[in-house]
Amino acid sequence: MIELKNVTRRFGNTVAVDNINLTIETGEVCVLVGSSGCGKSTTLRMINRLLPHSAGEILVDGEDVNAMNPEQLRLNMGYVIQGTGLFPHWTVARNIAMVPHLLKWPKERIDARVEELMTLLDLDPATHASKYPQQLSGGQAQRVGVARALAADPNILLMDEPFGALDAITRENLQMEMLRIQRQVRKTTVFVTHDIDEALKLATRIAVMDQGRIIQHDTPENILRHPASDFVENLVGKQDRGLKLMSLRPVRDLMSPHAEPRQSVAGEGAIREEDSVRLALSVMLWKDLGEVAVFNARGQETGVITRERIIQEGA
């Protein structure tokens, strides 16, 4: 758990972060979102003491960060940044092994961990372990960046616009990976982005920031349904909210389940229970259907979802 209590950060006379209070529960993904210069990165960098805070208190698992050794504190927090910051003179494997190495793990344990992480992030250890960062694509490099952050199994993950420099398709892929990995490892994550769609997709709770203050701190659904101010309303896109809400809801919520899962073939592009209602509607509009079958992860047909129900209750 991370608690920020009345935290302020001044740069000279300008106030970058203005007396904010924020509690990030263990295992949740808190996304700080706002336009550039709103203080979101500053807030993140105060948590691992890359920047000192001018006033207030920051507690990690109940302990004041200022009372801890900064290097020790950071070794227990994964850190991912936009430019990856991989060491260009180290191989991928050595980059991932950075923190375990600093913690003086035995070599076999490091090797096993590197292989495990590369597999988790969908990088083939055989082909990529001995490559150098310059030989990777942007998406692969950022996967290595995430693997490096997870290497010593820290409780906390800090991510500063990690996917900001990637193309749309790669970004989307990595967001899906993030969700998958988060389901597996459950890290307390603070994620900074200026992209509200990314925030809605990844967050357990979103903190909307503007001019150094937190305007609203709530779940993605509540941010969309009850924006606290005009600023938040504009940020989430006034008119677009209906569809955005739809993309938050899984098909599971609105489908009519069959009494028994039916054994049938889930073809390419079939709708699954965890897909968004928005995707289901889009498929129906494209194929001009009134309803589509829904499949579970094992490929069994578990129900159907109708166009009418989505229109009535989707948002």
Binding site: N48, L50, E71, Q72, L73, R74, L75, N76, M77, Y79, I81, Q82, G83, T84, G85, L86, F87, P88, M98, V99, L102, G145, R148, A149, L158
Partner: peptide
């Protein structure tokens, strides 16, 4: 030296000497 390298090294917990 690429500033992001330094930033990442610091953020990962390397000491100034390291």
């Amino acid at each position: 030296v690429d500033p992001t390298v330094r930033e990442a090294a610091r953020g990962m917990g390397m000491s100034p000497g390291q």
